[in-house]
Design a protein around this nucleic acid. Structure first.
Lengths: 214, 214
DNA sequence: TGAAACCCTAACAAATGGTAGCGGAGGGCT
DNA sequence: AGCCCTCCGCTACCATTTGTTAGGGTTTCA
Protein backbone atom coordinates (compact mmCIF):
# COMPACT_ATOMS: atom_id res chain seq x y z
CA UNK A 1 0.00 0.00 0.00
CA UNK A 2 1.19 3.48 -0.90
CA UNK A 3 2.22 5.92 1.80
CA UNK A 4 -0.31 8.47 2.93
CA UNK A 5 -0.25 11.95 1.49
CA UNK A 6 1.06 14.19 4.23
CA UNK A 7 -0.68 17.55 4.16
CA UNK A 8 0.04 20.88 5.83
CA UNK A 9 -2.77 23.38 6.22
CA UNK A 10 -2.40 27.14 6.47
CA UNK A 11 -5.42 29.34 7.06
CA UNK A 12 -5.90 32.16 9.49
CA UNK A 13 -9.58 31.35 9.79
CA UNK A 14 -9.29 28.80 12.53
CA UNK A 15 -12.78 27.49 12.12
CA UNK A 16 -12.22 26.95 8.45
CA UNK A 17 -8.87 25.27 9.02
CA UNK A 18 -10.30 22.98 11.66
CA UNK A 19 -13.13 22.09 9.32
CA UNK A 20 -10.86 21.21 6.44
CA UNK A 21 -8.65 19.21 8.75
CA UNK A 22 -11.63 17.17 9.76
CA UNK A 23 -12.68 16.69 6.19
CA UNK A 24 -9.29 15.48 5.08
CA UNK A 25 -8.55 13.23 8.00
CA UNK A 26 -11.60 11.16 7.16
CA UNK A 27 -9.88 10.09 3.96
CA UNK A 28 -7.78 6.97 4.42
CA UNK A 29 -4.99 8.11 2.12
CA UNK A 30 -4.56 11.58 3.63
CA UNK A 31 -2.76 12.60 6.76
CA UNK A 32 -2.80 16.13 8.14
CA UNK A 33 0.68 16.95 9.34
CA UNK A 34 -0.09 20.30 10.84
CA UNK A 35 -2.49 23.20 10.89
CA UNK A 36 -1.14 26.75 11.01
CA UNK A 37 -2.96 30.02 11.31
CA UNK A 38 -0.45 32.36 9.73
CA UNK A 39 2.13 32.33 6.96
CA UNK A 40 5.14 32.53 9.25
CA UNK A 41 4.31 29.38 11.18
CA UNK A 42 3.46 27.57 7.98
CA UNK A 43 6.86 28.42 6.47
CA UNK A 44 8.64 27.26 9.62
CA UNK A 45 6.73 24.02 9.40
CA UNK A 46 7.81 23.61 5.79
CA UNK A 47 11.44 23.98 6.88
CA UNK A 48 11.25 21.45 9.65
CA UNK A 49 8.70 18.86 8.69
CA UNK A 50 8.46 16.83 5.59
CA UNK A 51 5.16 17.05 3.82
CA UNK A 52 3.83 16.23 0.38
CA UNK A 53 1.35 19.04 0.01
CA UNK A 54 0.49 22.38 1.46
CA UNK A 55 -3.01 23.78 1.22
CA UNK A 56 -2.90 27.46 1.94
CA UNK A 57 -5.30 30.31 2.15
CA UNK A 58 -4.59 33.23 -0.13
CA UNK A 59 -5.39 35.95 2.36
CA UNK A 60 -3.52 35.83 5.60
CA UNK A 61 -2.10 38.61 7.71
CA UNK A 62 1.65 39.07 7.25
CA UNK A 63 2.96 36.33 5.01
CA UNK A 64 0.16 35.35 2.63
CA UNK A 65 -0.45 32.45 0.31
CA UNK A 66 1.40 34.05 -2.56
CA UNK A 67 4.46 34.61 -0.35
CA UNK A 68 4.43 30.96 0.55
CA UNK A 69 4.29 29.96 -3.10
CA UNK A 70 7.21 32.27 -3.88
CA UNK A 71 9.21 30.86 -1.02
CA UNK A 72 8.64 27.30 -2.17
CA UNK A 73 9.46 28.14 -5.77
CA UNK A 74 12.68 29.93 -4.79
CA UNK A 75 13.94 26.93 -2.85
CA UNK A 76 12.82 24.49 -5.52
CA UNK A 77 11.05 22.36 -2.97
CA UNK A 78 9.15 19.50 -4.45
CA UNK A 79 6.13 20.03 -2.23
CA UNK A 80 2.81 20.37 -4.05
CA UNK A 81 0.71 23.45 -3.52
CA UNK A 82 -2.99 24.17 -3.53
CA UNK A 83 -4.30 27.66 -2.93
CA UNK A 84 -7.71 28.21 -1.43
CA UNK A 85 -9.18 31.60 -2.23
CA UNK A 86 -12.36 33.41 -1.59
CA UNK A 87 -11.86 35.56 -4.61
CA UNK A 88 -12.73 34.58 -8.12
CA UNK A 89 -10.40 37.16 -9.57
CA UNK A 90 -8.38 36.44 -12.62
CA UNK A 91 -5.50 38.62 -11.45
CA UNK A 92 -5.00 36.65 -8.26
CA UNK A 93 -5.34 33.37 -10.08
CA UNK A 94 -2.66 34.34 -12.59
CA UNK A 95 -0.31 35.47 -9.88
CA UNK A 96 -0.62 32.04 -8.33
CA UNK A 97 -0.09 30.32 -11.65
CA UNK A 98 3.06 32.36 -12.19
CA UNK A 99 4.32 31.19 -8.84
CA UNK A 100 3.75 27.63 -9.97
CA UNK A 101 0.71 26.71 -7.93
CA UNK A 102 -0.63 23.24 -8.64
CA UNK A 103 -4.27 24.04 -8.08
CA UNK A 104 -6.43 27.01 -7.27
CA UNK A 105 -9.74 26.30 -5.58
CA UNK A 106 -12.47 28.64 -4.48
CA UNK A 107 -13.73 28.39 -0.95
CA UNK A 108 -17.21 27.75 -2.21
CA UNK A 109 -16.13 24.62 -4.05
CA UNK A 110 -17.61 21.26 -3.14
CA UNK A 111 -15.70 19.33 -0.48
CA UNK A 112 -15.53 16.45 -2.93
CA UNK A 113 -13.89 18.76 -5.40
CA UNK A 114 -11.12 19.50 -2.95
CA UNK A 115 -10.56 15.82 -2.19
CA UNK A 116 -10.59 14.99 -5.89
CA UNK A 117 -8.21 17.81 -6.72
CA UNK A 118 -5.73 16.77 -4.04
CA UNK A 119 -5.53 13.29 -5.53
CA UNK A 120 -5.19 14.68 -9.04
CA UNK A 121 -2.43 17.04 -7.97
CA UNK A 122 -0.57 14.25 -6.21
CA UNK A 123 -0.73 12.23 -9.41
CA UNK A 124 0.46 15.20 -11.50
CA UNK A 125 -2.73 15.07 -13.48
CA UNK A 126 -4.21 18.41 -12.55
CA UNK A 127 -4.14 21.46 -14.77
CA UNK A 128 -5.59 24.44 -13.01
CA UNK A 129 -8.64 25.47 -14.96
CA UNK A 130 -9.71 29.03 -14.70
CA UNK A 131 -12.69 28.83 -16.98
CA UNK A 132 -14.52 26.59 -14.60
CA UNK A 133 -13.78 28.95 -11.78
CA UNK A 134 -14.99 31.90 -13.80
CA UNK A 135 -18.27 30.29 -14.73
CA UNK A 136 -19.04 29.54 -11.11
CA UNK A 137 -18.23 33.08 -10.18
CA UNK A 138 -20.66 34.56 -12.67
CA UNK A 139 -23.50 32.44 -11.40
CA UNK A 140 -22.80 33.36 -7.82
CA UNK A 141 -22.50 37.10 -8.16
CA UNK A 142 -25.96 37.45 -9.61
CA UNK A 143 -27.96 40.20 -7.94
CA UNK A 144 -26.10 40.52 -4.73
CA UNK A 145 -27.82 43.71 -3.69
CA UNK A 146 -31.22 42.69 -2.46
CA UNK A 147 -31.53 45.28 0.25
CA UNK A 148 -30.79 48.07 -2.19
CA UNK A 149 -33.99 47.35 -4.01
CA UNK A 150 -35.79 49.80 -1.78
CA UNK A 151 -33.06 52.32 -2.41
CA UNK A 152 -33.61 52.04 -6.16
CA UNK A 153 -37.03 53.55 -5.77
CA UNK A 154 -35.45 56.66 -4.29
CA UNK A 155 -33.94 59.45 -6.29
CA UNK A 156 -30.34 60.47 -5.76
CA UNK A 157 -31.34 63.50 -3.77
CA UNK A 158 -33.79 61.58 -1.63
CA UNK A 159 -31.11 59.04 -0.80
CA UNK A 160 -28.81 61.85 0.17
CA UNK A 161 -31.40 63.42 2.43
CA UNK A 162 -32.10 60.02 3.97
CA UNK A 163 -28.45 59.64 4.87
CA UNK A 164 -28.51 62.95 6.72
CA UNK A 165 -31.70 62.01 8.51
CA UNK A 166 -30.14 58.71 9.55
CA UNK A 167 -27.33 60.70 11.07
CA UNK A 168 -29.81 62.46 13.28
CA UNK A 169 -29.80 65.80 11.50
CA UNK A 170 -32.79 68.08 11.61
CA UNK A 171 -34.37 69.60 8.52
CA UNK A 172 -32.63 72.87 9.23
CA UNK A 173 -29.22 71.25 9.57
CA UNK A 174 -29.71 69.34 6.33
CA UNK A 175 -30.87 72.47 4.54
CA UNK A 176 -27.79 74.33 5.72
CA UNK A 177 -25.47 71.44 4.92
CA UNK A 178 -26.75 70.96 1.40
CA UNK A 179 -27.45 74.63 0.75
CA UNK A 180 -31.14 74.01 0.29
CA UNK A 181 -34.25 75.63 1.60
CA UNK A 182 -35.85 73.99 4.62
CA UNK A 183 -38.97 73.66 2.49
CA UNK A 184 -37.12 71.56 0.00
CA UNK A 185 -35.86 69.21 2.67
CA UNK A 186 -39.39 68.95 3.99
CA UNK A 187 -40.59 67.97 0.55
CA UNK A 188 -37.95 65.28 0.18
CA UNK A 189 -38.78 63.93 3.59
CA UNK A 190 -42.45 63.82 2.59
CA UNK A 191 -41.58 61.81 -0.51
CA UNK A 192 -39.38 59.48 1.52
CA UNK A 193 -42.30 58.79 3.80
CA UNK A 194 -44.51 57.97 0.87
CA UNK A 195 -42.00 55.79 -0.95
CA UNK A 196 -40.81 53.88 2.10
CA UNK A 197 -44.30 53.63 3.54
CA UNK A 198 -43.52 55.10 6.92
CA UNK A 199 -44.96 58.02 8.82
CA UNK A 200 -42.40 58.99 11.40
CA UNK A 201 -38.77 59.82 11.74
CA UNK A 202 -38.08 56.82 13.91
CA UNK A 203 -39.23 54.44 11.20
CA UNK A 204 -37.32 56.43 8.62
CA UNK A 205 -34.13 56.09 10.65
CA UNK A 206 -34.69 52.38 11.04
CA UNK A 207 -35.26 51.93 7.31
CA UNK A 208 -32.14 53.90 6.56
CA UNK A 209 -30.05 51.77 8.89
CA UNK A 210 -31.58 48.62 7.41
CA UNK A 211 -30.51 49.83 4.00
CA UNK A 212 -26.98 50.16 5.24
CA UNK A 213 -26.87 53.94 5.45
CA UNK A 214 -25.57 55.68 8.57
CA UNK B 1 -31.08 12.62 28.35
CA UNK B 2 -31.95 15.91 26.75
CA UNK B 3 -32.79 16.15 23.06
CA UNK B 4 -30.03 17.02 20.68
CA UNK B 5 -29.66 20.56 19.44
CA UNK B 6 -30.75 20.55 15.83
CA UNK B 7 -28.63 22.90 13.78
CA UNK B 8 -28.99 24.33 10.30
CA UNK B 9 -25.90 25.63 8.54
CA UNK B 10 -25.84 28.31 5.85
CA UNK B 11 -22.58 29.22 4.16
CA UNK B 12 -21.85 29.65 0.50
CA UNK B 13 -18.32 28.48 1.02
CA UNK B 14 -19.07 24.83 0.66
CA UNK B 15 -15.72 23.75 1.99
CA UNK B 16 -16.18 25.82 5.08
CA UNK B 17 -19.72 24.58 5.60
CA UNK B 18 -18.69 20.98 5.23
CA UNK B 19 -15.87 21.56 7.69
CA UNK B 20 -18.14 23.06 10.31
CA UNK B 21 -20.63 20.30 9.79
CA UNK B 22 -17.93 17.78 10.56
CA UNK B 23 -16.84 19.70 13.58
CA UNK B 24 -20.32 19.88 15.01
CA UNK B 25 -21.39 16.35 14.28
CA UNK B 26 -18.57 15.06 16.45
CA UNK B 27 -20.33 16.57 19.45
CA UNK B 28 -22.80 14.18 21.05
CA UNK B 29 -25.40 16.84 21.81
CA UNK B 30 -25.45 18.42 18.37
CA UNK B 31 -27.18 17.28 15.24
CA UNK B 32 -26.74 18.99 11.90
CA UNK B 33 -30.15 19.15 10.26
CA UNK B 34 -29.05 20.58 6.97
CA UNK B 35 -26.31 22.44 5.16
CA UNK B 36 -27.24 25.13 2.65
CA UNK B 37 -25.06 27.16 0.38
CA UNK B 38 -27.23 30.19 -0.17
CA UNK B 39 -29.70 32.26 1.76
CA UNK B 40 -32.71 31.22 -0.29
CA UNK B 41 -32.31 27.52 0.41
CA UNK B 42 -31.63 28.21 4.05
CA UNK B 43 -34.85 30.19 4.38
CA UNK B 44 -36.81 27.43 2.68
CA UNK B 45 -35.29 24.98 5.12
CA UNK B 46 -36.35 27.19 8.01
CA UNK B 47 -39.92 27.11 6.70
CA UNK B 48 -40.09 23.39 6.34
CA UNK B 49 -37.84 21.83 8.93
CA UNK B 50 -37.80 22.35 12.60
CA UNK B 51 -34.46 23.35 14.00
CA UNK B 52 -33.19 24.92 17.19
CA UNK B 53 -30.39 26.96 15.77
CA UNK B 54 -29.17 28.39 12.51
CA UNK B 55 -25.52 29.21 12.01
CA UNK B 56 -25.18 31.47 9.02
CA UNK B 57 -22.44 33.18 7.12
CA UNK B 58 -22.73 36.93 6.88
CA UNK B 59 -21.65 37.23 3.26
CA UNK B 60 -23.63 35.20 0.80
CA UNK B 61 -24.79 36.04 -2.69
CA UNK B 62 -28.43 37.11 -2.90
CA UNK B 63 -30.00 36.64 0.50
CA UNK B 64 -27.27 37.18 3.07
CA UNK B 65 -26.95 36.49 6.77
CA UNK B 66 -28.51 39.80 7.72
CA UNK B 67 -31.51 39.10 5.51
CA UNK B 68 -31.96 35.78 7.22
CA UNK B 69 -31.88 37.44 10.62
CA UNK B 70 -34.45 39.97 9.45
CA UNK B 71 -36.68 37.25 8.14
CA UNK B 72 -36.55 35.32 11.39
CA UNK B 73 -37.17 38.46 13.43
CA UNK B 74 -40.12 39.47 11.28
CA UNK B 75 -41.81 36.11 11.74
CA UNK B 76 -40.95 35.98 15.42
CA UNK B 77 -39.52 32.51 15.08
CA UNK B 78 -37.97 31.17 18.23
CA UNK B 79 -34.97 29.72 16.45
CA UNK B 80 -31.59 30.81 17.82
CA UNK B 81 -29.16 32.53 15.50
CA UNK B 82 -25.40 32.66 15.27
CA UNK B 83 -23.66 34.71 12.61
CA UNK B 84 -20.24 33.76 11.35
CA UNK B 85 -18.36 36.65 9.85
CA UNK B 86 -14.97 37.23 8.38
CA UNK B 87 -15.07 40.84 9.37
CA UNK B 88 -14.24 42.23 12.75
CA UNK B 89 -16.14 45.41 12.01
CA UNK B 90 -18.21 47.26 14.49
CA UNK B 91 -20.74 48.31 11.88
CA UNK B 92 -21.51 44.77 10.79
CA UNK B 93 -21.60 43.55 14.35
CA UNK B 94 -24.11 46.24 15.27
CA UNK B 95 -26.28 45.51 12.30
CA UNK B 96 -26.53 41.93 13.48
CA UNK B 97 -27.27 43.03 17.02
CA UNK B 98 -30.06 45.21 15.70
CA UNK B 99 -31.55 42.19 14.00
CA UNK B 100 -31.46 40.31 17.28
CA UNK B 101 -28.66 37.88 16.63
CA UNK B 102 -27.80 35.63 19.56
CA UNK B 103 -24.10 35.45 18.88
CA UNK B 104 -21.56 36.86 16.46
CA UNK B 105 -18.41 34.85 15.88
CA UNK B 106 -15.43 35.57 13.72
CA UNK B 107 -14.25 32.95 11.29
CA UNK B 108 -10.83 32.95 12.83
CA UNK B 109 -12.25 32.00 16.19
CA UNK B 110 -11.19 28.76 17.84
CA UNK B 111 -13.39 25.78 17.01
CA UNK B 112 -13.85 25.29 20.74
CA UNK B 113 -15.20 28.81 20.98
CA UNK B 114 -17.91 28.00 18.46
CA UNK B 115 -18.90 24.84 20.30
CA UNK B 116 -18.91 26.68 23.62
CA UNK B 117 -20.96 29.54 22.23
CA UNK B 118 -23.56 27.23 20.74
CA UNK B 119 -24.15 25.67 24.13
CA UNK B 120 -24.29 29.08 25.79
CA UNK B 121 -26.79 30.36 23.27
CA UNK B 122 -28.99 27.31 23.67
CA UNK B 123 -29.03 27.88 27.42
CA UNK B 124 -29.95 31.54 26.92
CA UNK B 125 -26.78 32.49 28.66
CA UNK B 126 -25.15 34.26 25.78
CA UNK B 127 -25.74 37.86 24.89
CA UNK B 128 -23.86 38.53 21.70
CA UNK B 129 -20.42 39.52 22.90
CA UNK B 130 -22.01 41.97 25.27
CA UNK B 131 -19.68 41.37 28.14
CA UNK B 132 -16.62 41.17 25.98
CA UNK B 133 -17.52 44.42 24.33
CA UNK B 134 -18.14 45.96 27.72
CA UNK B 135 -14.74 44.88 28.94
CA UNK B 136 -13.22 46.38 25.84
CA UNK B 137 -15.12 49.56 26.45
CA UNK B 138 -13.65 49.93 29.91
CA UNK B 139 -10.18 49.60 28.53
CA UNK B 140 -10.89 51.98 25.74
CA UNK B 141 -10.04 55.56 26.56
CA UNK B 142 -12.03 56.90 23.68
CA UNK B 143 -15.19 55.14 24.73
CA UNK B 144 -15.98 53.73 21.33
CA UNK B 145 -18.62 51.53 22.82
CA UNK B 146 -20.20 53.95 25.20
CA UNK B 147 -23.68 53.07 24.08
CA UNK B 148 -23.28 49.72 25.78
CA UNK B 149 -22.27 51.34 28.99
CA UNK B 150 -25.09 53.77 28.48
CA UNK B 151 -27.65 50.99 28.75
CA UNK B 152 -26.42 50.26 32.24
CA UNK B 153 -27.01 53.83 33.31
CA UNK B 154 -30.65 53.68 32.31
CA UNK B 155 -33.37 52.76 34.73
CA UNK B 156 -35.85 50.00 33.95
CA UNK B 157 -38.55 52.47 33.04
CA UNK B 158 -36.27 54.52 30.85
CA UNK B 159 -35.17 51.40 28.98
CA UNK B 160 -38.80 50.52 28.46
CA UNK B 161 -39.63 53.97 27.10
CA UNK B 162 -36.59 53.78 24.86
CA UNK B 163 -37.86 50.53 23.36
CA UNK B 164 -41.17 52.18 22.51
CA UNK B 165 -39.43 55.17 21.01
CA UNK B 166 -37.27 52.87 18.90
CA UNK B 167 -40.45 51.30 17.60
CA UNK B 168 -41.52 54.67 16.29
CA UNK B 169 -44.18 55.40 18.88
CA UNK B 170 -45.07 58.97 19.77
CA UNK B 171 -45.22 60.22 23.34
CA UNK B 172 -48.98 59.93 23.26
CA UNK B 173 -48.92 56.34 22.06
CA UNK B 174 -46.38 55.40 24.72
CA UNK B 175 -48.39 57.15 27.41
CA UNK B 176 -51.53 55.27 26.37
CA UNK B 177 -49.68 51.98 26.06
CA UNK B 178 -48.10 52.20 29.48
CA UNK B 179 -50.99 54.01 31.16
CA UNK B 180 -48.89 57.05 31.93
CA UNK B 181 -49.34 60.75 31.46
CA UNK B 182 -47.78 62.25 28.36
CA UNK B 183 -45.86 64.50 30.73
CA UNK B 184 -44.24 61.52 32.35
CA UNK B 185 -43.14 60.14 29.02
CA UNK B 186 -41.73 63.54 28.16
CA UNK B 187 -39.74 63.51 31.36
CA UNK B 188 -38.33 60.07 30.67
CA UNK B 189 -37.41 61.14 27.18
CA UNK B 190 -35.69 64.18 28.61
CA UNK B 191 -33.68 61.99 30.97
CA UNK B 192 -32.80 59.65 28.12
CA UNK B 193 -31.46 62.59 26.17
CA UNK B 194 -29.33 63.66 29.10
CA UNK B 195 -28.02 60.18 29.90
CA UNK B 196 -27.34 59.16 26.33
CA UNK B 197 -26.04 62.57 25.39
CA UNK B 198 -28.26 63.09 22.38
CA UNK B 199 -30.75 65.76 21.47
CA UNK B 200 -33.10 64.29 18.92
CA UNK B 201 -35.33 61.35 18.34
CA UNK B 202 -33.27 60.17 15.40
CA UNK B 203 -30.17 59.84 17.55
CA UNK B 204 -32.20 58.18 20.26
CA UNK B 205 -33.47 55.61 17.79
CA UNK B 206 -29.94 54.92 16.58
CA UNK B 207 -28.66 54.45 20.10
CA UNK B 208 -31.53 52.14 20.86
CA UNK B 209 -30.84 50.01 17.80
CA UNK B 210 -27.15 49.96 18.66
CA UNK B 211 -28.06 48.64 22.06
CA UNK B 212 -30.03 45.82 20.50
CA UNK B 213 -33.49 47.15 21.30
CA UNK B 214 -36.15 47.50 18.61
C1' DT C 1 -43.44 63.15 -17.44
C1' DG C 2 -40.87 63.27 -13.36
C1' DA C 3 -37.10 64.82 -10.59
C1' DA C 4 -35.69 68.68 -8.13
C1' DA C 5 -36.02 73.01 -6.14
C1' DC C 6 -38.80 76.29 -3.82
C1' DC C 7 -42.96 78.37 -1.22
C1' DC C 8 -46.84 78.47 2.30
C1' DT C 9 -49.85 77.11 6.24
C1' DA C 10 -52.05 74.71 9.99
C1' DA C 11 -51.75 71.23 13.14
C1' DC C 12 -49.14 68.53 15.77
C1' DA C 13 -45.04 66.65 18.25
C1' DA C 14 -40.77 67.10 20.44
C1' DA C 15 -37.09 69.55 23.06
C1' DT C 16 -35.86 72.00 26.98
C1' DG C 17 -36.20 74.61 30.94
C1' DG C 18 -38.53 74.41 35.26
C1' DT C 19 -41.27 72.53 39.74
C1' DA C 20 -42.92 68.99 42.82
C1' DG C 21 -45.08 64.92 45.38
C1' DC C 22 -44.54 59.89 46.51
C1' DG C 23 -42.04 55.75 47.95
C1' DG C 24 -38.28 52.63 48.51
C1' DA C 25 -33.20 51.78 49.64
C1' DG C 26 -29.35 52.85 52.31
C1' DG C 27 -26.61 55.21 55.82
C1' DG C 28 -26.13 56.98 60.31
C1' DC C 29 -27.61 58.29 65.03
C1' DT C 30 -29.86 57.48 69.43
C1' DA D 1 -34.83 48.54 66.80
C1' DG D 2 -36.68 52.95 65.68
C1' DC D 3 -36.11 57.28 63.56
C1' DC D 4 -34.17 60.77 60.46
C1' DC D 5 -32.31 62.14 56.32
C1' DT D 6 -30.92 61.82 51.68
C1' DC D 7 -30.75 59.96 47.13
C1' DC D 8 -33.13 58.41 43.27
C1' DG D 9 -36.63 56.45 40.36
C1' DC D 10 -41.07 57.35 38.99
C1' DT D 11 -44.70 60.14 38.43
C1' DA D 12 -47.05 64.55 36.96
C1' DC D 13 -47.49 69.23 35.44
C1' DC D 14 -46.45 73.90 32.82
C1' DA D 15 -44.55 77.23 29.35
C1' DT D 16 -41.74 78.22 25.57
C1' DT D 17 -39.30 77.31 21.58
C1' DT D 18 -38.14 74.56 17.95
C1' DG D 19 -39.04 70.81 14.64
C1' DT D 20 -42.07 67.66 12.00
C1' DT D 21 -45.97 66.31 9.18
C1' DA D 22 -49.33 66.64 5.62
C1' DG D 23 -51.80 69.27 2.83
C1' DG D 24 -51.75 72.58 -0.92
C1' DG D 25 -48.92 75.00 -4.56
C1' DT D 26 -45.14 76.90 -8.75
C1' DT D 27 -41.02 76.84 -11.70
C1' DT D 28 -37.17 74.76 -14.19
C1' DC D 29 -34.90 71.35 -16.76
C1' DA D 30 -34.03 67.05 -19.31
Amino acid sequence: MAAKTRIILADDHKLFAAGIENLLSREADFEVGGVYHNGKEALEALENEKADLIITDMNMPGINGLDILQHIKKRRWKIKTIVLSMYDEEAIFHKCIRQGVDAYILKNADPDELIFTIREVMEDRYIANFEQVLKQAEEDEFDQYDHFKAALKLSKRELEILKWIAQGKSNKEIADGLHLSVFTVETHRKHLHRKLEVSSMAELVKKALDMGLG
